[in-house]
Write a protein that binds this DNA or RNA. Structure first.
Lengths: 389, 389
DNA sequence: AAGATTTATGAAATCGATTCCAATTTAAGG
DNA sequence: CCTTAAATTGGAATCGATTTCATAAATCTT
């Protein structure tokens, strides 16, 4: 190993960074060797800069509460009291502190606050994927409500992945978030329940009657029923069901139950080739069309679990000369913006209300310390009839 | 004030919570008075429970690194080394530590880590609003890349609000995030630049040639030009321009510039009533239709700054008996999923690549300590011709 | 075999806030 | 004017981790 031909002074902590930055700024190469073993891995003093350009911002050390206290000639305690709006601080000192904060451009280090206060003012939202307009609307609303209430939103996509979902649950244990909203559930509730010890969980859209937690959702059985019933009322008998969500989600199970209920009510026995549960995108809708198209006995109507699937299906059907709804009636789900544009009959979900309610339940939960209630809010569906049925 | 008829023992910190929880569990009412004045506001000992029900989870105290150290019969330092995968820990002790962590279900408190390490592994993304599919796609991709790289995503909507945007910038100063990605900019760059001292900022979609920060964006002038040129090539002369973003954004300015360039190239002088800059939703597209419909001299083609506006416009036009593109040609922007469904000609933005590039630039920026480069990545547009022109 | 490295470990300091506890001053009550 | 309660203030402990610094044991070098 290279042996420096001169003795190297110990560089005080903090200074070494500045040195490197300065040399970087001068566009020179700097190599500092220090032989103390611990430097090797804990704070690597060996730097080499090998070219390039750009402007370097070496930030000043951020002002801390101690700086403010010193400048104001008061104790940290008093400054903290001003920050947190405690009573029992005289107007006079309050003004001194505020001025010092202003002058130093002081902003409290939120990690220190979180550590000490043991709360984070952050709520995580788990969504399978964001590009589904249903979920992006949900998240948009939730962010709005959270912001109103002074909370931040940590955003996670589970990508319909069980393992991903479980790994994100660790955020609760690591005290990184105050609470968790699940908009879908890949794992069984019993897998998730233990995490309640570490903080509140709220279900939104997704639901489970076993779970003793607040939830905002819709009666999916009713949703499936309403949609199917509408198709039946239009005179259809051979109706295909295609759900939007994979896995063992209650949501899709409920919808399917509603479909079956409606069909049985008029005494139609359901053929196995009428059930599809693996499509949940526009592309999925297109694929669905070809599957149906190739059936010996083609259905006359399709109940889809999302407007995305419905639009893909209609798109591909039209391309193949089908007239909608005469050759094939299609009903969607959600009432996404695209539904209006395409004249799609659909079962409307009150997304805004859903998101708002869930977030409000969460905030309430957090603010009422650790009391866990199982407040269940069920919102109504609405059938929007357009031209596709 | 109520005077307790007996002396009340001082309740040790920590126990009081448990007491309350236990009494709650028993569904009794408990009132604890303590007369020490400080309790009044700093930690309120006065509880009263007045009914209700539910299950109470009184979490165990979370295991800390000290607990792990004690159980393993080692020091905190060694445990920390195992957590952070430092070398110089013998296999034997490593196993001891891992076992202790397992047994205690230990998860490090991330706030303590952030405080000590002075980094948060969290990146904030500012988006004007999420329900615009362009932005939701962007965020989806960014979250994916961030997750790959081990970062979390804090999600903020600025709602096209200058003040909101500035207030969110404080997150950087409060060390709550390692970096910030802006997908739109309400404020002038000079307002934002000072915050660079506190951490890296990356521009995505939005851009500003003055800003010496990494950015991933598209040549919006070219985008505006390509779209307009296409309409001109189709034989149109009276072309209305409608941009998707309000405010002084470079993006819309650039696009407008491209439009003007294309028009001037063939010697058409632009009428003031051909320029609209305040519509950016489906509803906005509908409104736009009526404005155009009421003009004495109706245009034959419209260049819109987003597929949303374009679809609203087409929807309303068709409702009023227009044939597209014969009576009115419309070109969109973005190539959102809806464009294909509606057969909308559009200027496609490579959203995935845009989001991925921006996030990669950010991660690189964070990992290369504080070196600030002005790496600018410009991605290409693509014209997608369908049936609306 | 002596000196120089490398490996391995832990006690104590530190990150930047809040909370506890004690002490002092001011106001209210009788 | 004395007693009691309320209003102020600050020093030290604490939150739960990482990093510094010191020191000892094992391994190389020559």
């Amino acid at each position: 190993m290279y042996q420096a031909p001169f003795s190297i002074p110990v560089i005080p902590r903090g200074l070494e960074r500045c040195l490197v930055h300065y040399v970087f700024y001068l566009k020179k190469t700097l190599v500092i060797f220090q032989t103390f073993q611990y430097n090797r891995y804990e704070n690597d003093f060996i730097y080499a800069y090998l070219g390039g350009g750009g402007i370097l911002y070496v930030g000043d050390r951020m002002a801390t509460i101690s700086d403010v206290a010193e400048r104001a000639g008061l104790s940290r305690t008093t400054v903290s009291r001003v920050i947190n709006q405690h009573p029992y601080v005289s107007e006079e000192k309050k003004k001194l502190v505020k001025q010092a904060m202003e002058e130093l451009q002081y902003v409290p280090n939120s990690n220190a606050q979180k550590l000490r206060k043991q709360k984070t003012e952050t709520i995580a939202v788990y969504v399978p994927r964001l590009t589904n307009p249903f979920f992006s609307q949900l998240v948009e609303t939730m962010e709005e409500v959270a912001a109103e209430e002074g909370f931040q939103l940590l955003f996670c996509q589970t990508r319909y992945n069980k393992q991903q979902e479980l790994s994100y649950l660790q955020l609760l244990r690591g005290k990184q978030i105050d609470g968790l909203i699940l908009t879908s559930m890949e794992n069984h509730w019993s897998e998730i329940e233990p995490y309640l010890t570490y903080g509140p969980i709220v279900l939104c859209n997704e639901y489970d009657y076993e779970a003793k937690v607040p939830m905002a959702h819709l009666d999916q059985v009713m949703g499936g029923y309403i949609g199917t019933k509408h198709l039946i009322d239009r005179g259809h008998q051979s109706i295909v069901y295609c759900s939007s969500e994979p896995g063992g989600s209650r949501v899709s199970k409920g919808r399917q139950e509603g479909y079956i209920k409606a069909m049985q009510q008029i005494g139609i026995s359901i053929k196995p080739e009428w059930m599809y549960t693996d499509q949940f995108t526009i592309e999925g809708g297109k694929r669905l069309f070809y599957r149906l198209h190739n059936l010996k006995e083609r259905p006359t109507a399709v109940f889809t679990g999302s407007d995305e699937v419905a639009s893909g299906l209609i798109f591909e059907a039209r391309k193949n000369g089908y007239r909608i709804p005469d050759d094939l009636a299609v009903i969607g789900f959600d009432d996404q913006p695209v539904a209006e544009l395409l004249g799609l009959t659909t079962v409307k979900q009150p997304v805004h209300q859903l998101g708002r309610t869930a977030m409000e339940l969460m905030v309430e939960q957090i603010q009422s310390s650790r009391k866990i209630s199982s407040n269940r809010v069920e919102l109504p569906f609405e059938l929007i009839i357009r031209d596709s049925t």
